[in-house]
Write a protein that binds this DNA or RNA. Sequence first.
DNA 1: GTGAAAGCGCTAACAA
DNA 2: TTGTTAGCGCTTTCAC
Lengths: 341, 341
Amino acid sequence: MAATLHDVAQRAGVSIKTVSNVVNDYPHVSAVTRAKVLEAIDELGYQPNLSARSLRSGRSGVIGLVLPELSLSYFAELADAVIARAEKHGLVVLVEKTGADRDREIAVLSSPRMRLTDGLIFSPLGMGQGDAPLLAVDYPMILLGERIFGGPVDHVTMRNVEAARAATEFLLDSGRRRIAVVGAHRGEVLGSAALRLQGYREALEAAGVDYDPALVSHTTLWHRSNGAESMRELIGAGVEFDAVFGLNDALTLGAMRVLQEEGLRIPDDVAVMGFDNIEEAQFAVPSLSTVDPGRTEIAETAVDLLVERLGGAAARPREPRELLVDFRVVARESAPEPARA
Amino acid sequence: MAATLHDVAQRAGVSIKTVSNVVNDYPHVSAVTRAKVLEAIDELGYQPNLSARSLRSGRSGVIGLVLPELSLSYFAELADAVIARAEKHGLVVLVEKTGADRDREIAVLSSPRMRLTDGLIFSPLGMGQGDAPLLAVDYPMILLGERIFGGPVDHVTMRNVEAARAATEFLLDSGRRRIAVVGAHRGEVLGSAALRLQGYREALEAAGVDYDPALVSHTTLWHRSNGAESMRELIGAGVEFDAVFGLNDALTLGAMRVLQEEGLRIPDDVAVMGFDNIEEAQFAVPSLSTVDPGRTEIAETAVDLLVERLGGAAARPREPRELLVDFRVVARESAPEPARA
DNA sequence: GTGAAAGCGCTAACAA
DNA sequence: TTGTTAGCGCTTTCAC
């Protein structure tokens, strides 16, 4: 049986409260008493019972992280960063995955299994703008992603439109004019796909290049296989293009693979640009030019904001906040830096 | 304020115990009472307080997963599978990462932050065989990986030696004789690197091919960059080889990239074989032949064993168990199936 | 089939 | 500076 505060108190010959004070670093404890207590703690191998502490204090020291899928590199790297940052605040992370399914996302918001977390970092992929009211939960929550804007909670996200626009401009600057897009979502107005496509269109327009819908291929998911498939379709349909902008890196890597199968040279025949800057992009063949959307900063900001919300009601901001992190275009072999005039 | 059992009982006009019975699906409750209670639960939006339940019952419904790093694809995919399987058992997963640091691994074993988990799935990378006694913790634990064997806990792992031997034999069968190895760990006797190297040597010996230490390159970590670096060293040293066996996929993909930078054709000049079968291997250029070590099965077995240990003491096996999952060699472009006689 | 009461281990008033 | 006491919300005997 594990030792309790009681056991420690008995052994040290003090009251349970004194032990509690020592354990919680309450300052007004005499050095002698403290030493006695610490010794007893050591001898008994005492470890506080977190369930009890949590029941009593209403705080568990656990935050929840809800993601579509951990096997997608983007989310794996995000989770890694969240866990690292949480640890700095003395918090541990409960990871839940939804498979990007709207119903499961909604369910998790009111799931009792999540009740033992102090707050949530929530990255939906199935829910949409219309579901925003559902985010008005009675615990602290930080929203990630670009499925819902202006909701009732803090929101940390990337500059999708601007970043996609910059990526497209990068390709335009290097002389490309027929830029195929991989990974659009049909009928989507918000969401990463729609926003990035919008950035693409803005860049074309600014450069006076006509938008050609034939260049835009649609997928449901954003895995490597979807990118590969889209690229086969584009090529099969005889669409001419001199560049590809993939709406995320996984898609783009899949597409790049098919380009090479087809004997197209990268970047000579086709320049390729991705989005996400996952670690893999750097070691692909050829290495993938992409947009670094500030993933680590998103993770860290999300944790920091959540911790703020967890703090005393006094320090807690009343209004939901919208935070945008910085991005940058990373030039690699698949789309080298254009020679600037 | 959230509703409690008490509130529900009051509203339904029954005792707190009856509500508890309904919540816990205790069978002997009359249909009328049950309906009344369920209605009250619904009206109040009652959600059980898991901290209280956990304090009282001694079980939290949370299991811990301790990994070196979530951003390594192998572990990300492992975590994904663990979370999926845990959910089937109604459990949620707390993920902790250690950065493969021995001290942090040891610390996490007795960390109070882990005390609110019912049990642990533990994948160390820094601890070694000598640390086996530290695994004798007083909560259920399942050990993964190949750093410690014959320890005091259940252990689920892959057939490293046999799988590496099969991979090497595959290369030998396709006529390769000078097989470079990427990712060995100097001085290691146990651990994935040592075991896989052993399999490599066994295959060579069985085929009557001499072992040449010059072909074996060493790394500390197993990231893409380490594989790339090793490959540059091998080539720089003028070592001749007609195949590469990378001790994991990430390493191998890094190495493969350098091979291509150097103008070597894969598999014509150099056949390449990895280990892990991460999703990326399938979409690399060229697609990577590799060993599927049964990652999903490892994850699922680990969760299932842990759940068994979580169960009543009656059903609990007394002796630590050692489980090995099946592997298979996956032939792709980087090392095609040899033409069998 | 249902109720009453005890207590899991801890924290936070309040007292001393 | 330290001790006493009352719960946090739930499960679990044990009666009825």
